[in-house]
Amino acid sequence: MLKKEGLPSINELCIATVDKIFELGAYVKLDEYGGLEAYLPWNEVSSKWVRNIREVIREGQKVVVKVIRVDRKKNQVDVSLKRVAEVERKRKIKEWKRARRAEKIIEAAAKKLGANLDEAYSEVWLKLEGVYGDVLAGLEEASVTGAEALRKAGVPDRWIEALMEEIPKHIRVKQVRVAGRLIMMTYEPDGVYRIREIFKSLAEVPGEGITIKMYTEGAPRYVVELIGNDYKVLEATLSELVSKAETLGKKLGVSISFERIKLG
């Protein structure tokens, strides 16, 4: 699925595998172009003088190269190692690793469906890439918001169930937390039950994808903790909880104050 068609463009960054090393250069295979052979001249290996090219590269090594010449008539490509800036190298490697992760998920789904990789590429890969730019980003969105993220990209229904089964095996959604402390006091004889009613009402506030934890630090101090995937949504939900607690407190004769808790 990672195979690109045709030849790369000038200045394009490519993941390559060093294939053969000679005294005056090396041949590498461009992984994203189906193993297309490219030539790495000796003077494009390093910006520093080296006695032996093997001091810099070795057979089988994965490297990031920049395309410097393309002869489309002869189907020949020359690349450079020294012209790749460190920030470019890191960015390309990150993109490559993300693409490989996405590839594994889609291949596993294809296996379940008995579909071939060409079908997976046209029906899933290109659809997600077209909408999200990064295929893994589309799969990550599906892990958070559900199958609708795949439908939005135009992924056929027959793929969606298989993908949604595979995504949790490969993508772990990073969760965030917010918390606050409610100080609730009342002098009414049934005060415990009034505070309990407030807790019951607060438990109904959080929407889908948000976990709420409420526990006491010892009366009259009670902690409310929210866990979810979106910090802004959690902040808004916590504000809603506090507002609802204050409204109910006035009705039930319970004085309420709130303070944020910083989580490490």
Rank of each mutant, 00 (worst) to 15 (best):
D134Q: 14
G6D: 07
G218D: 05
E88K: 07
W49N: 13
W42G: 03
E23D: 07
K29T: 08
V131I: 15
Y132S: 04
L40T: 02
L241T: 09
T145D: 10
I21P: 02
Q175C: 10
M185T: 15
N43A: 12
N116P: 07
V77Y: 10
R51H: 15
V56Q: 14
I198N: 09
E225P: 01
N43L: 10
Y33F: 15
Y215L: 06
T211V: 14
K174E: 15
K250I: 04
V87I: 13
Y39T: 06
E217C: 05
T237N: 02
L163H: 06
D190M: 05
S9D: 14
N75W: 10
S143R: 14
E129L: 13
M185W: 13
S255P: 01
V135T: 05
G146C: 07
G34E: 00
A245N: 07
V192K: 14
G138M: 00
I167A: 01
G180H: 09
L136D: 10
I212P: 03
K62V: 03
D134Y: 08
K3A: 00
T145V: 13
L113A: 02
I198L: 11
K74M: 09
N11W: 13
L128P: 03
E23F: 04
M184D: 05
E88Y: 07
E197M: 14
D118R: 02
K62D: 06
E86V: 06
T216F: 05
G138V: 00
L241P: 11
V135W: 03
E37C: 04
I261H: 04
K48S: 09
K232Y: 14
S257H: 06
E5A: 13
S257Q: 09
A153H: 01
G34C: 02
D157M: 00
